[in-house]
Design a protein around this nucleic acid. Structure first.
Lengths: 253, 253
DNA sequence: GAGTGGTCTAGACCACACT
DNA sequence: GTGTGGTCTAGACCACTCG
């Protein structure tokens, strides 16, 4: 399913060894040179594999010392980012259940779609309730646009939509924007999540795109405030601060 | 301040040109080959620069076509991730004001530090109120551990602690874990943010680390629910799913 | 000084998109 | 076919850490 190139295989192999404590927390991985021998590749390929693990927060590379296996995995494995509920459920062992409330083919009105979209689009609407330990925790509303998403069987919605889109429809899911706010629920949400009449709800709205930048999904997830937890691992990025262009070409005075 | 290597300079230059509309949204950047000529570097160096922009969500690389400038910058410039309030303020033009409520040197009790830390540590405690358009929006509580943070003048706290740590103390801020929940505020928070007695508050707690994995900061930010918005850009990562190690060595059945 | 990661190069071959 | 990005290589030099 994923790519079968060397750097990904190596990254997955090392990640798996970290997960299984073959490489232990607070110890160093073999040096890049040793990994070259181990996997029979060039150093740049090893480095690209390690970069993936670094980005995920599995390791920290320290110049002159080595690549240290970090401790954060426990609570940061793959949350945040763009991950499906089923994947979360699996990695966290949450013992959750999904109940489909609605699933229908409709025409999605522009207001439900990005501000930029002008005309309405056909697609699927799915409303699902997620129960954790038998109590309602999340209500998901998904709009799946039909130019890329041509079919959506009920079994896929009950299992994992992402899994279906990637493996059955062969879509190349690439990135998403996500926005978290706290707001007043509508009646459906309030009842489904069993919230008090003056209660608030955490709304996570996202737009998801394919590798060719096609928008294929708009989601709103409503979480009970007392069940909501969002965990993130972030690296410091220093790209956007300073402001003068390089010596190159345009924008002179 | 940042690194002075080619790939970073190129990334910053291109980011700046995107910001200034020299490279426009929904158009393609010059090809990697052209960028090689433009900057006089090898292609791998160009690619590493583009990878940074890709990771930030500024561009989308499409095989066979080119690197498309994305549209998302408007609302996703550098939020999320690990960014200081001052940086946010600057990039978003929020017109915000910081008021210092407390700043003192103390001994930080273990309970305020990571579960793993056992003994108490000396450090600074700072409590700051952030006003946006003259109304209280966020209360920040920062613990700065004194092994790395040796001094903390009041002017730094009023301006930007990150700026001070990076530029004056020369610390190499690298990564953070972050957790968002919704909870009942304590009295101080409720009063400072002017919340109703039964109201909720959004809590963002984070642990920040240096490049050598030293913990240097523990923060809790309390946001008024009606002012809170968290925006994120995320790329789909596919590293941690499958589970069999490579042909390499250990873990046989 | 020996070992580590950080950066960079100049090639190579591939897969994909467009025409 | 031409041009694009995706992957990979085998080297090089540097900066850092640690003994």
């Amino acid at each position: 399913m994923a790519a079968l190139n060397k750097q990904n295989l190596i990254a997955q192999d090392i990640a798996s060894k970290i997960k299984h404590k073959i490489y232990q927390t607070n110890t160093y991985l073999p040096s890049e040179h040793q990994l070259c021998d181990l996997y029979g590749t060039s150093r740049e390929t090893i480095r690209k594999a390690l970069d993936q693990l670094n980005e995920l927060g599995l390791i920290q590379k320290i110049k002159g010392r080595g690549s240290l296996v970090l401790d954060i995995q426990r609570y940061t494995f793959p949350i945040s980012g763009i991950t499906s509920f089923k994947e979360l459920n699996a990695t966290l062992g949450m013992h959750a259940v999904t109940k489909i409330l609605h699933l229908k083919k409709t025409t999605i009105p522009p207001c439900e779609i990005s501000k930029s979209a002008v005309k309405s689009q056909p697609g699927f609407f799915v409303e699902r309730l997620r129960l954790i330990a038998d109590t309602p925790a999340v209500l998901d509303r998904d709009y799946l646009l039909t130019p890329p998403v041509t079919k959506l069987p009920k079994t896929a919605a009950a299992d994992s939509i992402y899994d279906y889109l990637e493996n059955d429809l062969g879509l190349n899911i690439s990135y998403a924007t996500k926005e978290i706010t706290v707001e007043k629920p509508d009646d459906t949400v309030r009842q489904a999540l069993d919230l008090p009449s003056d209660g608030l709800v955490v709304a996570v709205r996202s737009h998801s795109y394919l590798a060719d930048t096609t928008l294929f999904q708009i989601t709103a997830s409503f979480h009970r405030p007392d069940k909501f937890k969002f965990i993130d691992f972030a690296r410091r990025k220093r790209v956007l601060s300073s402001d003068k262009p390089l010596g190159g070409n345009t924008s002179g005075k």
